[in-house]
Simulated assay, not measured.
Amino acid sequence: MKRAVLLAAGLALAGTAQAAQKLGEYQAQRSPEQVYASVCGYCHGKNVGPVIRGRALPAEAVEYIVRHGQNAMPAFRPTEVTPAELKALAAWVQQSSADPKEKGQ
């Protein structure tokens, strides 16, 4: 009985890992613009958080803050923004131009 329960638990965890891997593969296909629009733009640019586009923020700082959070900004896990997406997003933010439609603190 114990073996059956352990086996079932192991299979459930393996299925979860496979699902997370597939999710990560899907998310890795998003462009920096798509990630910004779906993850970042809700707060940055709508007077919730500071405007980040057009400020030449260092890519390394963007990566660190996205993973670790800062002040009211939460940290985002690799299942939410993959490492590849984050690297591309950080470079995009660093090189981005300001959007006159965005407002922020």
Rank of each mutant, 00 (worst) to 15 (best):
T79M: 08
S31A: 07
Q34M: 02
Q27K: 15
R3S: 11
A4P: 01
N47C: 08
Q27F: 09
V35M: 01
F76Q: 06
A14S: 10
R3H: 09
E33Q: 09
L6P: 00
Q21G: 14
L23Q: 06
A56I: 02
V62W: 07
A72Y: 01
A20G: 11
K87D: 06
Q34R: 10
Y64W: 14
R55D: 08
A19D: 07
G54P: 03
P58R: 00
A72F: 08
R53I: 03
Q95K: 13
V5S: 03
Q70M: 11
V5A: 12
K87F: 06
H44E: 12
V66W: 04
G10I: 00
E85W: 00
A17Y: 06
Q105E: 06
P32M: 04
A72V: 15
E85Q: 15
R67A: 02
L57F: 02
P78V: 10
Y42Q: 14
L89Y: 00
P58H: 04
E60D: 14
A90C: 04
K2P: 01
R3E: 13
Q105L: 12
Q21F: 10
G54L: 08
A37C: 11
V35F: 02
L11Y: 01
G69A: 07
Q18E: 09
P74A: 14
G10P: 04
P50Y: 03
R3P: 01
G54I: 09
E33H: 02
L86V: 03
A12W: 09
P74N: 08
K46S: 09
A17D: 12
S96H: 03
A88S: 13
Y42R: 10
D99T: 10
A56D: 12
M73N: 02
Q34S: 11
Q70R: 11
T79I: 13
L11C: 12
K101R: 14
K22A: 13
S96Y: 08
S97K: 15
A90D: 01
R67C: 07
P50R: 05
A91S: 08
F76N: 03
K87C: 05
S38G: 06
G24Q: 15
P78I: 11
S38A: 12
W92D: 01
E33C: 02
N47V: 05
D99V: 15
G41F: 11
L89H: 03
A17M: 10
Q21K: 13
P83F: 04
